[in-house]
Design a protein around this nucleic acid. Structure first.
Lengths: 229, 229
DNA sequence: CCAATAGTGTCTGTGAGACAGTATGAG
DNA sequence: CTCATACTGTCTCACAGACACTATTGG
């Protein structure tokens, strides 16, 4: 091609913070590291981009999630790039962090390269050994998720295709760690026009709950006000 | 260290979209490329990270802005990573784009490596030759700036230290391309508690305007509602 | 029947939009 | 004085919060 000084390149990795909510608790998917830096520590699923396979970094994130955990996220968005000379003992490192959401499902670590991938409660992370600065990345991801929950409907991606308002309330409250008004949520569901009323209802210990589902091809509306305070 | 297969790494670059507002027009800083890919096209100021110099990618962005344009931005924030095999003829490329704001000032291209850096009106970009996918990156940056202007005071970073409400209105209107209510803006300035009333006033063809300045150490408040519609 | 959860009606509160009215500078 | 721009007062409107009320299920 032409003369470019191939100056030293940093390590470039892609890591994902995959969240779900189960039993009213926010969980994050972590993998126990089987390999050298921070072996035995919990780390975010991620790795190096494969420029022969990955159309872009989104694909790297998805590929690594699938390989390491068998899961395909319902929602995936770039979070932030974290970089510096000291964050990886192997050298100067640049990590593109994603955050992602999925309905809760059991993780069978189908892949040998990882000892075990599993859902950890965000609240129990302080008790665990976390690799690199992944704890910090999770904090940033959690903040972003909380913020976005105040003005959008992304929490629906923590639920299955069809869901009830009651389920959605539980998910939102688990994310923002505050109670919300059912009424406000229903107004938003109505106003957003993102959802359609299913013909099914679900039993939940009282009156049957209407199930909703995302309209096919609907994009995610951002509201002009935040919830709560 | 240990055996890591050094699989092929992508090119990693950092580019910045530096905005300002001058005479009620949103401008972006572009440099005429003196070197090979897209020589003679307009490109965003940016380049490769220097892992021996840059503490992190923010520093890369700042260093490149300073080198290529002599400017130090008042505000700098990550925008997005864009990646893919085709966006740079030299190979698979990953770019971390930043967007930044600064008070308008003339650019003297102090550095020889760039033919000319100058402020281009965003509206005239369609008429010009833009390198790589930089046009697309600018579009994304502009959208983000518009969005953020609706719920924060970042446009003040397009103004000098001390500024009047009237100046700020002009900047905001240039960014979001819609008129706003002076009253709403004043309420926000009051409520945010980010600013202090200077002891100076500025003449502007009518009654003297009160000058404000950012309180030292004040952080940028996000409002819970958006402006306008 | 009761308990539990789903959903409605409606009042209050907050902050943006609109816009008329007042204040104060230059010429 | 007039004109231009700065600032204030105040009404309306949209939408979130609060909460009482009704509806519908299972036991």
């Amino acid at each position: 091609m032409n003369t470019i000084l191939q100056i030293e390149k940093p390590l470039f990795t892609v890591d994902s913070v995959l969240f779900t909510v189960h039993d009213g608790v926010l969980k994050v998917l972590m993998a126990k590291r089987a390999e050298s830096p921070f072996e035995g520590y919990w780390g975010l699923p991620g790795g190096f981009i494969d420029i022969n396979v990955d159309e872009n970094t989104d694909m790297t994130a998805r590929r690594k999630l699938l390989n390491k955990t068998g899961l395909v996220p319902s929602y995936l968005e770039q979070l932030q790039v974290i970089s510096g000379p000291k964050r990886d003992p192997r050298g100067y490192s640049v990590t593109l962090a994603y955050y992602a959401l999925v309905a809760h499902q059991n993780v069978e670590s189908k892949i040998a390269s990882v000892e075990s991938a599993c859902w950890l409660s965000v609240s129990e992370l302080p008790k665990l050994l976390i690799a690199f600065d992944h704890r910090h990345i999770i904090d940033i991801a959690q903040q972003r998720l909380q913020q976005k929950t105040l003005y959008s409907m992304i929490p629906v991606f923590c639920l299955p295709e069809k869901f009830s308002i009651g389920q959605l309330i539980k998910v939102i409250e688990a994310i923002i760690e505050k109670p919300i008004q059912r009424k406000s949520l229903m107004r938003r569901i109505e106003a957003s026009e993102m959802f359609e009323i299913s013909n099914e209802k679900i039993s939940s210990g009282g009156r049957l709950a209407q199930l909703y589902s995302l309209k096919p091809g609907a994009d995610i509306v951002n509201f002009e006000r935040n919830l709560s305070l």
